[in-house]
Simulated scan of single mutants.
Amino acid sequence: MATQAMTRIYDRLLEQVLFRRTLQRWQRIASRAETADVSVLRRLHGPARQLRSELDRLLRVADGRLAQAESGARAIRRPPMSDWAWRPEIWRAPVTPGGIAPAEPRSAIGSEATLFHDCPAREVTLRQIRNAGADDLPPYGLKLDVLRFEGSFLSLVIELPPAAVDGLTLHHIVRLDAALEVETPRKIFVRLNLKHGPNTEQVVHGVAPADGALVAEFDLAHTKMNEKRLERAWIDLIFEKPEMNQFVLRDVTLSRRARAEM
């Protein structure tokens, strides 16, 4: 045991020495960059970008996990008997880009969500924000600001992970829960899309948020989904008459449960 403890201490000391040397090397390189030969800069540019990419990846994961630990972000209020529950990355970890202004007709934010619209003026902005309310479970939220809007649709598409469709059957109910703040109340349409083979089943619910809560349930027994060919699923949040309005999604979670048979 003493030998193992000494080995661990030695490894930590070696890591600290290597870190200091590496840090000092890059500090020297950075301090000389203004006067360095172009050929030297060209040779160092690739390794520097690769190092920054890995450091950025580490920081994104670390920031997200630390924020979760601080706020209890792992907690999801799932309905009884749920066999799957999930919170998209926008609400649980920092995403890239963290904001879009103005939003193009198709604008991805993070790896799971995309904003779609057809407004030629493009007076639409989208931004990830930090939640600070006492009742907020996740560390992050999403703010959507719309000024002049002359298009026919504005929707946020959230791609569901493979676990959402693994074992999904016609006996399941899929549920979306969201905490939403709106300047001017508007109905929001929630659409569940299920791709099975060459076909896509779509189920739409129009929901008027009540007391900041947005809930939509989809009973798959009423669909023609082919369980054996199910490939992927995604959710559309469609904002009706969004002009001159602000929407803040403090939380979004999805879950599924087996329907109680009579």
Rank of each mutant, 00 (worst) to 15 (best):
A2M: 06
T3P: 02
M6T: 11
R8N: 12
L14W: 13
E15Q: 14
V17M: 11
F19D: 09
R20M: 10
T22P: 00
Q24Y: 13
R25K: 14
W26I: 06
Q27L: 13
R28W: 12
A30L: 14
S31H: 13
S31V: 11
A33G: 09
A33K: 06
A33Y: 09
D37K: 05
R43D: 09
L44E: 07
L44M: 05
H45W: 10
H45K: 09
G46Q: 09
R49D: 08
Q50F: 06
S53F: 03
E54D: 06
L55C: 10
L58F: 15
L59V: 10
V61M: 09
A62K: 05
G64P: 00
Q68G: 09
Q68I: 14
A69C: 03
A75I: 15
I76A: 05
M81W: 08
D83E: 07
W84D: 02
W86Y: 12
W91R: 02
R92S: 09
V95P: 03
P102M: 13
P105Q: 07
R106V: 14
S107I: 01
S111A: 15
P120Q: 09
L126H: 01
P138T: 13
Y140H: 09
G141D: 01
L142W: 02
K143L: 15
K143E: 15
L144I: 05
V146G: 04
V146S: 03
L147A: 15
R148F: 11
S152D: 13
L154N: 02
S155L: 14
L156C: 07
I158K: 06
P162F: 04
P162H: 07
A163M: 07
A163V: 13
V165L: 01
T169L: 04
H171A: 10
R175V: 09
R175Q: 10
A178W: 00
E183C: 10
F189S: 12
V190S: 01
R191S: 09
N193F: 08
K195F: 02
G197Y: 07
G197W: 10
H205C: 04
G206E: 12
D211R: 15
L214Y: 00
V215R: 06
V215S: 05
A216P: 02
E217K: 02
E217C: 04
F218N: 00
A221S: 14
E227T: 11
R229P: 00
R229C: 13
E231P: 02
A233S: 04
I235W: 01
E240H: 15
P242F: 03
P242M: 06
E243T: 04
M244Y: 15
V252R: 00
T253V: 09
L254M: 07
L254V: 12
R256T: 02
M262R: 12
M262W: 11
